[in-house]
Design a protein around this nucleic acid. Structure first.
Lengths: 250, 250
DNA sequence: AAAATAGTGTCTTTTAGACAGTATGAT
DNA sequence: ATCATACTGTCTAAAAGACACTATTTT
């Protein structure tokens, strides 16, 4: 039997079943720290461990719909609030032994959300939390979710460079300082306020003025800031690049 | 039954089976045109149509291994030649009706290969070809493969900007002109030879000199060119950016 | 000889980044 | 009054891009 005959004879139903799940790396910025949505597993395997929100894809829904549904279920979000969440496919994970029960291929999605109500405020308290990503290292996560999260965080950092998606972490109207806080939080280092300000305004379509200003200055003083909303650009030209760190290059 | 109970009760084996396949968008540059590997389908659905090489993931292999296996099967490649092919995950496609037979989620991979022998040179002639991507518009491809190819081409164009992967389209030793030809072919427009030359040499770790030169000048004259091999950089800093086209930005 | 190509020099424009400075408003 | 903040001005360095030019090799 050569390769060709093998392929022709290959019947997937003759093999042990494969299941497809979606998992969501949902990020938000609250009180100047990047937070990640995690749920506590209610049954084996990894019972009691924290895991990404996710679950089996239903027969009639496409992958992105499944991811948005899982996100809605765990956050209690719906309607316009849910629609404003940015959702993009991250990657798929399918190592044969990543789930001890059976072969499961997971399609991971990445979500950017403005600061949301605590999941605990909903019906089932304590089974879903927004955890600061700095607290992740001390947690034992289920499956290969630590790797998925790493990939998601790196994608998020990179997306802020060449897309205007940082605005998706904010309300529809925001100040340049709030936008800078998103960059500083996701990238994990401070930026020069003056240069950032000028740079954002100089990129065509990144933000547009609402004409309004904040009601009050900052909590520690300062003039009222002008308000902006997201512009119509889908890519930033020129991009806002992170300074190159030697380790990431080689 | 609330959402939580539904999830707990949800058993994937109670639903119609889902199958997982890998499909490969394999690109190569031959005679200054970007080519794509396609195979002719030998059975329904889409019998006789061209499609991406791919197939069901086997139980014991991970996704990347499956993709490399499919590539090897269709190109007849193996050993060192196969190992030099760059392979990365592209995206997954899982619309419920993308395959008329059953629910199939396909994990697509993107491959960059140096100019390879024609698949027809192998055992089964005429069932696999390298097709110039300019000829794609006139073909009716199977499934949603046209969309996968679009995504793959855009990913390839973008990868040349900030990674040194253009070298993967060439042999281990190459000239700056050959490297420029890869960029021009993938991006689809000419570059300034002098500026490109200086730019490539100025990016740390992009290429390193072999000390040698070509045996002869170009076919239409000119001095012998120095030979280079890929350097140790995994990212280009600063990047080689395509000029921003207004359409892609908004 | 003519033409094409490899590689370098130089100048201009754009962008990034450092730093200073002014005006505003909270405490 | 003090201090943090919102912005703007200015200068320097890095990078991108246009253009010119020399040397080398093929036909």
């Amino acid at each position: 039997m050569n390769e060709q005959e093998f392929l022709t004879a290959y019947d997937p139903r003759a093999y042990p079943a494969v299941a497809v799940t979606v998992d969501v790396v949902a990020l938000t910025v609250r009180s100047d720290a990047l937070h990640l949505l995690l749920v506590r597993r209610g049954g084996p395997p990894f019972e009691g461990h924290w895991a990404l929100p996710g679950g089996f894809v239903r027969p009639e829904e496409d992958l992105a719909t499944g991811a948005r549904r899982e996100l809605a279920e765990e956050t209690g979000l719906g309607g316009e609030r849910l629609r404003r969440v940015h959702l993009e496919q991250l990657a798929s994970y399918g190592d044969p032994d990543r789930d001890p029960r059976m072969r499961i291929v997971s399609v991971a999605y990445l979500a950017f959300a403005p600061d949301l109500p605590d999941p605990a405020a909903g019906s089932d308290a304590d089974d879903a939390i927004w955890l600061p990503v700095t607290a992740l290292s001390s947690r034992q996560l289920a499956f290969d979710h630590d790797r998925i999260i790493d990939d998601g965080l790196e994608r998020a950092r990179s997306k802020l460079e060449y897309t205007p998606l940082a605005t998706r972490f904010l309300d529809t109207e925001f100040t340049i300082s709030e936008l800078r806080a998103v960059y500083e939080t996701v990238w994990g280092h401070p930026l020069h306020p003056g240069n950032f300000h000028r740079k954002v305004l100089s990129v065509p379509g990144f933000v547009e003025s609402t004409g309004a200003s904040t009601e009050r200055g900052g909590t520690r003083g300062g003039p009222r800031a002008k308000l902006y909303r997201a512009g119509d650009a889908r890519l930033l030209h020129p991009a806002l690049l992170r300074p190159a760190r030697e380790e990431t290059v080689r």
